[in-house]
C-alpha cells in the first residue's frame, strides 16, 4: 500500500467517525449536566430516518438535519421529563426509548427503504485542503465532518472555559451545592439534555445524509450503544471522546482491510475486535484494574498515566434533585 492509499483510508476513517463524534459530544454534554440519555440507539435510528425523509420530501438538507435534531431533542426531553419531573429511572426510560425508536423507525421507514435521495455534497476547504497529509485527511470532506471537528472544540471550550460550562458541570457534580448558590439545576439539566439530544439527532442525519446515505431497516443499529461506551472511554471529555471515535473507526477499517486476505471464519475474529476493545478499555477506565498496573509504573509516569487512563463519571449522574 502506498502513502496516497493510506491517506485515503485515514480520510474514510474520519468521515465514518464524524456522526459518532457528533453523538458523543451530545451525550457528553447531557451526562455532564447529570442526565444519562440511554435512548441513543433508537434515537439515532429514528432521527436518521427523519432526516432522510425530510430532506427527500423538501429537497432541503438543512430541513433534514433540523427534523433529525427535533426527533433527538424530543427523545431527550422525554427522558428529562420522566426523570426530572416524574422521578422515574433514567436508565429504564432510556432503554425503552431505545427499543421504541428502533421499532418506530422500522415501521415508519418501510416505504423509504433504499430510495435514492439527497446527500451532503463534498466541499474542500480552500487553502487548508492543500496542507500535506492533513489536508486530504481532514479538509477534503463534507460539511458534516467540519461540523463534527468544530463541535469538539466548541464543546470542550464551552464545558471547561466558560462560566455557563462551569454551571453545567456543577449541575452534574454537586447539584445541591449549585442549587444553593442559585443555579437553576433542573432548568439547566433540561436545557442541556435536550441540546445533547438534538446533537444526537443530527448525528442520525449525518448517517443517512452523508456517511451511509439513504435508509434501510436497522440502518445505524448498534452505533448508539457504541457511542455511549465511547463517552465513558472519553472520560466525559469531548476531545478524548472524539479520539475514541476515531480509534474505533480505525479498528473497523483495519478489520475490513485485513479480512480480504483471511478465510471467511476469520471475519468473525475481526468483527469481534471492537467489542473486545470495548471491554478492555472500560476495564482500564474504571480504575479497578488500572490501579494495580499504575502502582507498578515508574513514579514519574504515574500521574500522567492515571489522568490518561482513568475517568470518573459526574458524581450526580442519573440522580434526581429535589428543588422544592
Amino acid at each position: 500500500m502506498d502513502s496516497t492509499q493510506l491517506i485515503a483510508i485515514l480520510g474514510s476513517i474520519v468521515l465514518q467517525a464524524a456522526p459518532l463524534i457528533i453523538a458523543v459530544c451530545g451525550e457528553t454534554i447531557s451526562e455532564r449536566a447529570g442526565v444519562i440519555n440511554l435512548s441513543m440507539d433508537g434515537s439515532l435510528l429514528l432521527s436518521a430516518l427523519a432526516g432522510f425523509v425530510a430532506a427527500l420530501l423538501t429537497g432541503s438538507l438543512l430541513l433534514g438535519f433540523l427534523a433529525a435534531a427535533a426527533v433527538g431533542a424530543l427523545f431527550a426531553a422525554i427522558v428529562a421529563f420522566g426523570s426530572l419531573h416524574l422521578r422515574q429511572n433514567q436508565v429504564a426510560i432510556g432503554f425503552v426509548l431505545a427499543m421504541l425508536g428502533d421499532s418506530l423507525s422500522a415501521f415508519l421507514g418501510q416505504s423509504y427503504t433504499r430510495l435514492p435521495g439527497p446527500s451532503v455534497p463534498s466541499w474542500h476547504i480552500p487553502l487548508l485542503k492543500d496542507i500535506p497529509v492533513l489536508g486530504p485527511i481532514f479538509f477534503r470532506q463534507d460539511a458534516v465532518v467540519y461540523f463534527a471537528l468544530l463541535l469538539v472544540l466548541v464543546t470542550w471550550w464551552f464545558l471547561f472555559r466558560t462560566r455557563a460550562g462551569l454551571e453545567l458541570r456543577s449541575a452534574g457534580e454537586r447539584p445541591e451545592a449549585a442549587f444553593s448558590r442559585g443555579v437553576a439545576v433542573r432548568k439547566l439539566r433540561y436545557l442541556y439534555a435536550i441540546l445533547g439530544g438534538a446533537l444526537v439527532g443530527m448525528a442520525g442525519a449525518a448517517y443517512s445524509l452523508s456517511v451511509k446515505i439513504g435508509w434501510a431497516e436497522g440502518h445505524t443499529r448498534g452505533m448508539g450503544w457504541i457511542a455511549l461506551a465511547i463517552v465513558i472511554f472519553g472520560g466525559w471529555s469531548p476531545v478524548r471522546g472524539a479520539i475514541g471515535a476515531l480509534l474505533f473507526g480505525a479498528t473497523k477499517a483495519l478489520a475490513t482491510l485485513l479480512q480480504r486476505s483471511f478465510p471467511q471464519v476469520a471475519l468473525v475474529a475481526f468483527n469481534a475486535i471492537p467489542w473486545l476493545l470495548m471491554i478492555v478499555v472500560l476495564l482500564l477506565v474504571s480504575g479497578k484494574l488500572a490501579a494495580p498496573l499504575l502502582a507498578r509504573a515508574p513514579a514519574a509516569l504515574r500521574r500522567p498515566l492515571r489522568s490518561l487512563l482513568q475517568a470518573a463519571p459526574p458524581a450526580a449522574l442519573g440522580q434526581p434533585l429535589d428543588e422544592s
Binding site: 485515503a8 477499517a253 482491510l257 468483527n271
Partner: peptide
C-alpha cells in the same frame, strides 16, 4: 454481525 458493505466499498475505493 456482518461487515458493513458501506465500509467494505469505501475500503476498496481507497486502495
Amino acid at each position: 454481525v456482518t461487515s458493513d458493505p458501506t465500509e467494505v466499498t469505501s475500503s476498496f475505493l481507497d486502495t
